[in-house]
Amino acid sequence: MRPLDEAETKVVFDKLANYCSDLKSLIAPLDDGDRYVFRLNHSRVYYVRLSVANLATSIARDNLLSLGICLGKMTKTGKFRLHITALPILADNARYKIWVKDNGAMPFLYGSNICKAHVGRWSADCPEHQGVVVYNMNDVPLGFGVSARSTAEARRLDPTGIVCFRQADCGEYLRDEDALFASG
């Protein structure tokens, strides 16, 4: 387990900034003097309290399965992929949101994109190909994706047209149970 280097930090922040409006709160000091840091173990990036990260140094890297919140995975080409486990962080300070109706929640949780007919409401002024967090109508985050159309264009779209490409959904906790936390 090690801290991220400069390039890795930039890549991770860049990806998070697609979904979050305020990233400063992520690294802001906590009330008890502690703060959150980013740690890399087996190409997975964890968002963890510094005190916990320090404690975790006593565990061998091979034996350490997970700690804190797993944000995602660094690919071998140096890119960063967000996992569904990062959803609580993204949902807390999401820049753009989409609320899906109850009839659209299950299709989304089964891994399909969101069509216009399933959208209950969406953030205004959302540009095209921008990260959005998906909620149900009770404001429970279900996953995240990328907007297929800008809000203005989506208004003119027919009901079967796709408005959001799925990136991750809560159904992955069941579908990808084996691969979600297994390292390697």
Partner: peptide
């Protein structure tokens, strides 16, 4: 590698 672990450098990158 040059690690980024202190708050200042992290906030600069951010």
């Amino acid at each position: 590698k040059v690690f980024v672990d202190d708050r200042e450098s992290m906030s600069t990158i951010l």
